[in-house]
Simulated assay, not measured.
Amino acid sequence: MEEYFKVGIITSTHGLKGEVKVFPTTDDVNRFKRLKKVTLDTGKARDAGTVLEIEGVKFFKQFAILKFRGVDSIEDVERYRKASLLVPRSDAVRLRKDEYFVADLIGLTVRDEDGTEIGTLKDVIETGANDVYAIDLRDGRELLLPAIKQCVLEVDVEAGFIRIHILEGLLDGA
């Protein structure tokens, strides 16, 4: 399971006093108000040197504007452009029953109703009504399966699989 979750990506600087514009990759942009610190993913090992304490949060359109403690000029934050902001699993939002982190689902083995392995979960597509699971089937096709109770029979992240029911007609175009 993932140890860190991406909550946003720094897209650019904002103003001259060290603020950054962050494109949120979390469901709720307001969660930035509750965060005290984030880990900067520079592509290198995540260590104590990459933890940034959040001093201030504002919002502009779909972006969060963050100010980090001790980062006070545009020059200080310029190097953070395009970096991802991560939170450890312990700081992640609490999930309700039958909710899962997308990062924990990607790569799970997909089984049919009988338990036969049929593919791997490649992506979770968020739509207005419900999520859709993009599944790479063993025969090379892709199945787009609605993530609804009629189709998703069991999710066992610990055991590494999802058991599904394929509604009639879903494989016709795959």
Rank of each mutant, 00 (worst) to 15 (best):
K82S: 10
D98Y: 10
K58I: 00
K67C: 08
A92V: 07
E75M: 06
V71G: 01
I54E: 06
E75N: 09
K67R: 15
K67A: 13
D98M: 04
R94I: 07
R94V: 14
S84D: 15
V77F: 01
E75H: 02
G70A: 08
K61H: 14
L95R: 13
R94F: 05
D76S: 07
I65F: 05
R89E: 04
D76Q: 07
R94L: 13
P88Y: 11
L66S: 05
F60D: 13
V71C: 07
E78D: 05
I74C: 00
S84A: 15
K82T: 08
A92K: 06
R89G: 00
R79S: 11
A64D: 02
I74H: 00
S73R: 03
K67S: 15
R79K: 15
E99V: 06
R69E: 10
D72A: 11
D98Q: 11
E75I: 07
R96E: 15
L85E: 03
R81Y: 05
R94E: 15
R69I: 10
R81A: 04
R81V: 02
V57N: 02
V77S: 09
F59I: 12
L95G: 14
F60W: 05
I74V: 05
V93F: 12
G56S: 06
D76I: 03
V57W: 12
R81E: 06
P88A: 01
R79M: 10
S84F: 14
L85H: 02
L95C: 12
D91L: 07
R96Q: 15
V93H: 12
K61Y: 15
A64E: 01
R79I: 10
G56W: 01
V71F: 13
R69H: 07
V93Y: 08
I65H: 09
E55M: 11
L86D: 06
V71M: 13
Q62G: 04
L86Q: 05
V57C: 02
R96V: 06
V57I: 07
R69G: 01
S73T: 11
V77P: 04
Y80H: 12
K97I: 04
L85M: 03
R94K: 15
E99F: 04
A92C: 13
K97P: 05
D91Y: 11
D72H: 11
R79H: 08
E99N: 09
K58T: 07
E55Y: 09
V77R: 08
L86W: 08
S90P: 00
A83N: 14
I74L: 00
K97E: 10
S90D: 01
K67G: 09
L95N: 12
A83D: 07
F60I: 02
I74M: 00
R69P: 00
A64H: 03
S73H: 01
R79L: 05
R89W: 04
E99H: 13
V93G: 09
A64F: 07
S90E: 08
F68H: 12
Y80I: 02
Y80V: 03
K61E: 15
S90N: 01
V71A: 11
A64M: 02
